[in-house]
Design a protein around this nucleic acid. Structure first.
Lengths: 371, 371
DNA sequence: ACCAGTCATGTGCACGGTCACATCGCGTTC
DNA sequence: GAACGCGATGTGACCGTGCACATGACTGGT
């Protein structure tokens, strides 16, 4: 900054004055190092800095000729608005923060990409902060970081109960949305603008509906002993899928005691799958596709041949699901659409367009139970 | 901003002066809405704003007592430095940009998380910009966006030739590193600080070494007709793996004509796998695990039972690879470590610590060829 | 022809920090 | 004991932009 100032002082401001004097200033070889600012553009266009600012902000009352002259000057000088200065002056960072606790997973990663794209299209930038989701301190640090950048809104990806609790407690002025589901639609968390479920009508019941679809599919095929591999208990998505599973079984008068908990990983699905098989399940609904893959492996190890001897349904429809063997029956989620809608919701756009319905994708991993 | 200014003018600046006058200023009920700034802290601590700034920036010559008083005042007022103001004044954004073209994939997503974590630990923030990697315009937009935020450095994830070309051409002042590999170690791209391969010594040959490991493993098992499913031709990673594949085969006097191109997806691996099987391959080295999964499916459809009748090796070692059937032999990449090292390299830390060696993980998808 | 109202543009300051430089004590050195 | 150096702190300008307000030209109604 100081260096730039010095260069400027010696160089750009008044070369004309110096040209005819005996001033020992050298011929200013390295002139105009500093990027152009509104003042430079204003000078070049013969207007005031405020007019330049008006062009930048699409002010309505500007004569077309004036606007064009300014635009020409901007192009000429390769002018780029300084984001920091705008943020400072306008007190708007035009920055959206993403708070994630499962950065490596397919669903969250897809949603993050969609959020970035949607935000940039609206002139916003996106900063990410990952928390491990286990310790409150980690969550607080991530939120602090985003708050320090004056993020105007937060998109919470892969929400865990703990994250939402933390956000509610802080009751800072930043609006936020969850990307997948809220804990309880009847008691929204303070400060939360809303939630966007990956599938369905934008109501947080989508995950429930999807889980019911999967469970119903197995029940309709004739299964009576249907197990569910859940995600971690403190994940809201996991809880909602359990709820859908239970609701569907209850509506059919079936037992819902075959539950085993996983952590979204294939390894945990393998363990949980083995356990459910031992407990007599003839069909398994896994909380995501990775755990379903693990269950598939557990079935093979137990000498069961899916789908004839064990049916398995996943959740998400990751791109690989169609290439598992057998190809996985699963519930498709549109993570990208969820990301887009989260941004729309966060920025208060009048009506968030309805999204696709939850879809059950039937492939080869489900069949009627062995007789 | 205007509103906040007004509140301030009526409230905080000189309450002492007004206290004893008949000034009709009301008892200022809603006082101090605006967050505290350095001046407020300075007043509270009885020092100058500059001293506060020194505390913020860990200036050495500060009396411990003074520092403590300032820190107390900061805590008292819940002071948070304004990032925009610091960026404007110091001309340092403390922001790292991530340029990605494969945001949904496992490897890039993992690396991005690691970059975020490493950057935040050093007081940097991270902004992402995704480009589709197909159109130059999209790449330019993403880079423009990051440049407009005055990103101090760029981490290029999943680099394609086109992205590096674009970056080189622009020759703007922002240093950048690639996260995985560079096209040609002998002619680094202009402006590029270096590259970090996910495995190995931080030299761009890592991907070559990994590919050689995979290929050698198949050759040692006795295979003569070894095929390779490549990634897209314009991906640098893909090109390096092809190079390793060819080098290894050449060193053993084997043919290297069994190549088929994929796009990293399982679906493309399925197609390419079928093609290579038809062309007589007894072993396949896939450019990543997803394509290996597709090849596994193709083998099953062709009535071949891996590994006895077809050996398959993947690349990456995604968490699911151990649960494919058969469990996938693959080359492990440490994406997180790559992300950490990319940040270290970008920020010019003296010596980037050597990383893990590329590791071949032998599981159940490889065996000697059928007699 | 006059005044009000709107359009188009300019002036000055504020935003919240950091930097260069000035200042003030106090201990060292010859 | 005077000059010096350095540690600790203060002063004022400046970064690039946006807002409130002022100004002048022009338009239209009466």
């Amino acid at each position: 900054m100081r260096a730039r100032g010095a260069v400027l002082t010696g160089g750009a401001p008044s070369p004309d004055n110096h040209q005819m004097t005996a001033d020992p200033v050298p011929p200013a070889p390295a002139r105009r190092q500093r990027p152009a600012n509104v003042m430079d553009v204003a000078r070049a266009a013969g207007v005031s800095h405020q007019t330049v600012s008006r062009v930048l902000n699409d002010h309505p009352s500007l004569r077309p000729g004036t606007r064009q002259r300014v635009l020409d000057a901007m192009a000429e000088l390769d002018y780029r608005p300084n984001a920091a200065a705008r943020a400072l002056s306008s007190n708007r960072s035009r920055m959206i923060g993403i708070l994630s606790t499962a950065a490596g997973e397919y669903g969250p990663a897809s949603s993050v990409a969609a959020v970035e794209s949607a935000a940039r299209a609206r002139g916003y930038s996106v900063t990410i902060a990952n928390a491990d989701g286990l310790s409150r301190a980690s969550i607080d640090e991530a939120v602090d970081h985003l708050a320090a950048l004056s993020a105007e809104g937060l998109v919470v990806v892969a929400p865990q109960t703990r994250v939402l609790e933390t956000l509610s407690k802080r009751s800072f002025g930043i609006p936020w949305v969850t990307l997948q589901a809220v804990a309880d639609p009847d008691s929204p968390h303070e400060g939360g603008v809303g939630s966007v479920a990956p599938v369905g009508h934008g109501r947080p019941l989508d995950q429930v509906i999807g889980a019911r679809l999967a469970t119903a599919h197995l029940a309709e095929a004739g299964h009576r002993r249907i197990g569910h591999i859940t995600g971690p208990a403190d994940w809201i998505d996991a809880a909602q899928r359990v709820r859908g599973f239970r609701e569907e079984l209850a509506s059919r008068g079936l037992d819902d005691d075959l539950l085993a908990t996983g952590d979204w990983s294939a390894a945990s699905g393998h363990r949980a799958g083995r356990e459910l098989i031992e407990r007599g399940a003839t069909a398994i609904f896994a909380g995501n596709d990775q755990m379903a893959l693990g269950a598939l492996a557990a079935a093979a190890e137990a000498g069961l041949e899916p789908p004839a001897e064990l049916s398995i349904v996943g959740f998400d429809d990751v791109p690989e699901a169609a290439f598992y063997r057998p190809a996985l029956t699963t519930v498709r989620q549109d993570f990208s659409e969820a990301g887009r809608r989260a941004v729309a919701l966060l920025l208060g756009e009048s009506e968030v367009a309805p999204s696709v319905e939850p879809v059950l994708i039937v492939r080869g991993s489900t069949a009627p139970p062995a007789p």
